[in-house]
Design a protein around this nucleic acid. Structure first.
Lengths: 195, 195
DNA sequence: GCACTTGCCTAATAGCTTTAGGCAAGTGGG
DNA sequence: CCCACTTGCCTAAAGCTATTAGGCAAGTGC
């Protein structure tokens, strides 16, 4: 009958929209087929299986996020860049909760290495050029920033902070302040007290 | 026939073990029934449904984690306490990845308020007594610590740090150093530059 | 030892996943 | 123009999970 024009790309994009609407966990081959008004089996010519679909959505989200991050970092340095990058993650998660959830999907090492995930690490590293850190402290700092961004955004989105005053916007600003301070005064490894 | 002696508690405990073995996402009423060598429908006299089972596992994990945290904090203060609490989360996640995943489950506000989750916040707050923070900075700091612990442990467990040197143990130690430094030198809110 | 409760069972419905095979809508060469 | 070919969506079917309704037998209390 009428051909709808399914492609892996259109399925991935629609899957991402669906994720934002109903949650990434509810993204199912069946639901996606319904959205295109097409029989379920038809999708299997375009994506290998359910896992494949979910992985494609995750890769889409990672790439979108990396694009936004690159954009935000352009022409900024220091605390300005730090805040901009931090807000990219937080804003993306709030605008696109389903895609954010997708971006947290555990990818197999192969896929992860070929994903935009590596760009994220590179950009965080680039950001740290505005601070005076040398290896291996730079790597430690990259991991710390990744942890804070991921952790805060996940907890806030999950409602973990919703019960109490003060509002989360204030906390977020103060955390960025704190990270900036910390990066400008990164502590040297404590000397071994036995020495 | 032979009665196996199912109870909500035994199901929850077995579900937690199953989660650690095969992952929280694979914890299913069917799999649990197989584990007890019992028909699937039999479980529905003890747990309301699949969601109920998962919630019970989450509550178990939160409680276990809070118990460990309370134990670790007893008799410690300052950086010692900070490191101890941090390690409780990290070690628990590595020993019990499925339960850790369960503990991340989004609970509805009612359930969350009655869960051990509130003990976690209280203990983090208690920990901060060793540092010189007053409200609202204390709340900001609680949220920062929660974010770092949750974020770091999730990323490490998901393999996010596995590609690169230095090892994650070193980074973890340095992050705890950094947090300690930060809490001892918590920056005041920057004065409004327009003022 | 009998009535009663409770626990696990059978049976049935419904949804999601995935594979195999079919037919018709587009596409390119003669 | 049309015929062969490819490709896209369809029907059919099997397997797994979730959930509910109703039954029977194993334990419990008098």
């Amino acid at each position: 009958m009428a051909r709808v024009g399914l492609t892996p790309e259109r399925l991935t994009e629609a899957g991402a929209e669906l994720a934002d609407e109903v949650g990434f966990d509810e993204v199912t081959v069946s639901a996606l087929a319904r959205r295109f008004d097409v029989k379920v089996a038809s999708l299997y010519s375009h994506v290998k299986n359910s896992q494949d679909l979910r992985t494609r959505i995750a890769l889409l989200a990672l790439a979108e996020l990396a694009d936004r991050a690159a954009d935000a970092l352009a022409g900024r340095a220091g605390k300005d860049a730090l805040a901009a990058l931090a807000n990219v993650y937080r804003d993306y998660a709030r605008e696109h909760p389903g895609r954010w959830a997708a971006a947290q999907l555990r990818l197999d090492p192969q896929t992860a290495a070929a994903s935009a995930g590596v760009r994220h690490a590179q950009m965080t590293r680039a950001l740290l050029r505005g601070y005076d850190l040398t290896e291996p402290d730079q790597t430690h700092a990259v991991r710390l920033l990744g942890s804070v961004f991921h952790g805060y955004v996940s907890l806030e989105l999950g409602g973990g902070f919703s019960h109490s005053a003060p509002g989360t916007d204030v906390t977020w600003a103060r955390i960025i302040d704190a990270l900036d301070t910390l990066l400008r005064n990164w502590p040297s490894p404590p000397t071994d007290p036995r020495g």
